[in-house]
Simulated scan of single mutants.
Amino acid sequence: MRTLVNALRLIAVIATASAILAQWLVSSRSPEYNPFNFFGYFTIQSNIVIAVALAVTLVVAFRSKREPLRLSVFRGAATVYIATTGVVYNTLLTGAAVENTVPWSNDVLHKWIPLYSVLDWLLFSDRGRLLLRHVWWFLIYPAVWLVVVLVRGATDGWVPYPFLNPSLGYGVVALYCLGVAVFIALMGVLVVGMSRLRIVKV
């Protein structure tokens, strides 16, 4: 079972890296390409984070070591972020028009990796039991990301997603931010609860 789980995680890491690279190769050819914009998307960042988390988990597994709690916290946070990417995209952004999008890459980053990551965390038992206080750690990165995006929106006018556009009014943007924050917190509580399940022993 451990071999199968490791193989699935390796495939997920390779798929994520390939999808990001494919989209970057297309986006970088655009005259409007800006690396700070490309890597400023929560989608790209959350996929990088989950890929790193799974890759580190693989290294620990190959060394036949038990996963340390700090890695479980990191992987739990990564699961929260990638799940947020999947839910937000498929509810708020599925009809948004984005230029130079690579269809298969878009599906991998917004649908398949979020789905796999949640199932991986839910099903496989090789993670530590998290505590509710860890949810606060999960919120730090999204909060910093939102602050940076809001500052950029107010200064150079760039925002990664339509619902964060200052032209909507900061009251509306604040409500969206609050909604995302609440969702992330609730997802964090769910991830903590999942960490106590032992469905498939690895």
Results as ranks from 00 to 15, higher is better:
R2Q: 05
T3P: 08
L4D: 07
V5R: 14
L10E: 06
I11T: 09
I11A: 12
I11Q: 02
A17M: 07
I20K: 09
I20R: 09
I20F: 03
S27G: 08
S28C: 13
S30D: 09
Y33T: 08
N34H: 07
N34A: 05
P35V: 08
N37F: 15
Q45I: 15
I48V: 06
I48F: 10
V49Y: 10
A53C: 12
A53P: 11
L58Y: 04
L58M: 04
V60M: 12
F62K: 15
F62L: 15
R63N: 04
E67V: 12
E67H: 02
S72C: 01
I82E: 00
G86C: 01
T91V: 03
L93I: 09
G95K: 11
A96G: 13
A97D: 15
V98A: 12
K111C: 14
W112N: 12
W112I: 08
P114G: 13
V118S: 08
V118Y: 01
L119I: 12
W121L: 02
L122T: 15
L123P: 12
D126M: 05
G128Y: 00
R129S: 11
R129W: 13
L130Y: 04
L131P: 09
R133K: 14
H134R: 03
H134Q: 00
H134P: 14
P142H: 06
L146Y: 06
L150F: 07
D156Y: 13
Y161I: 14
N165K: 07
N165A: 02
S167V: 01
S167E: 13
Y170C: 03
Y170G: 03
V172Q: 15
L178P: 06
G188P: 08
V189Y: 10
V189L: 13
V191E: 01
V191M: 01
S195Q: 12
